[in-house]
Design a protein around this nucleic acid. Sequence first.
DNA 1: ATAATATATGAATAATTGTTCATATGTTTA
DNA 2: TAAACATATGAACAATTATTCATATATTAT
Lengths: 120, 120
Amino acid sequence: MNNNEPKMCDCTVIHVDVVERVKGEMPEEKKMYDLAELFKSLSDQTRLKILFALSKNEMCVCDIAALLGMSQSAISHQLRVLRNTRLVKYQKSGKVVYYTLDDNHVNAIFKQGLDHVAHK
Amino acid sequence: MNNNEPKMCDCTVIHVDVVERVKGEMPEEKKMYDLAELFKSLSDQTRLKILFALSKNEMCVCDIAALLGMSQSAISHQLRVLRNTRLVKYQKSGKVVYYTLDDNHVNAIFKQGLDHVAHK
DNA sequence: ATAATATATGAATAATTGTTCATATGTTTA
DNA sequence: TAAACATATGAACAATTATTCATATATTAT
């Protein structure tokens, strides 16, 4: 057996053909990175509750904080995460900032997820 | 101003009616928890790559490790996460364990996510 | 039975993340 | 202009997580 080749893992590749083909089909790194960021954004209960709330109604930061029984600061930090992944957008009106869902992709993903967890 | 009431947050609720209504519509805690777990499972690049690979072909652990240039142990740990959220299932054949996507919910969620990140 | 191999897993460690606290910014009202 | 208020944000801390390392389990081949 030839041990000169660099081993990529500590076991032997079993189906070289499949591995090579799938390697060719793998999406670019950047796309995977963005996708992971999106799901990371959805991976926290507080943020999911915020998104659910916004799917029902436009809301300002204080309302969300009251709804979830959390500090204004905590909510504000989480809203930034949701803004960064373009899951929510906002609109200022005086000193109040109203948040809404960015589009209905968000609702669709949310619903798919609920289907999965419900489908016991 | 009355300071005897317990403050749920450090700012004033602005739209009491909306907050109360949405509070009534909020899904049960357990459902939100499960949903967060699901998205947490999807929130890592390595796991997303594994899922993408499995959407193309059934694969054993060594193949996945080789495909991603990672250790067998790392992949095995990540596969456990994916099993726990029922995103993958497996089938033993001798000492080789073949993994596949659990169902096509997974593909659907994956695709929704890609749509969102592509939609610049 | 023994050796080789595929996979799983516990412990340890480094990196990431959610919340709090203190404070800053910007808008409105007095 | 000063005080009040809505929101944002940097730093700190605790909790969570991804990977590595060492090792265990189970199956196959010798």
